[in-house]
């Protein structure tokens, strides 16, 4: 019963996992952004409300990906996997919009 002759593959999990403190700071930042989203709903800015909300959402997503998912520090494989997830989400959104944006308005005679 030899050890496997195949070259062992190891999962290199980045330099080090994020510390408890950085996790907590990320949490605080996320909560702050959540507050900002809720707050912005009370300020009428027209179409800019949507822009602001999407911007905040992107910021939140980046925090989660960079700190919680360690995408910045970990191996490129992990980034690739995460990107595949995004590509699939983009697919859902794109083909979903293909429906929503091309619906013909109903006009009576």
């Amino acid at each position: 019963m030899n050890a496997r002759t195949r070259q062992p593959r190891s999962h290199r999990s980045g330099p080090r996992p994020p510390s408890l403190a950085s996790n907590l700071w990320a949490l605080v930042a996320l909560l702050a952004l959540l507050g900002l989203t809720a707050g912005s709903a009370f300020i009428p800015m027209g179409a800019f409300n949507t822009v602001a909300n999407v911007g905040i959402a992107v910021a939140k997503a980046l925090i989660v990906m960079i700190i919680y998912m360690r995408l910045a520090t970990d191996s490129p494989l992990l980034r690739m996997v995460a990107m595949a997830g995004f590509a699939w989400l983009a697919l859902l959104v794109a083909l979903g919009l293909a429906d929503l944006l091309t619906r013909v308005p109903l006009l009576g005679s």
């Binding site: 083909l95 293909a98 091309t102 619906r103």
Partner: peptide, 9 residues
Amino acid sequence: GQSMYASIV
């Protein structure tokens, strides 16, 4: 109720 164009795709 999907758009007819999306249906073609």
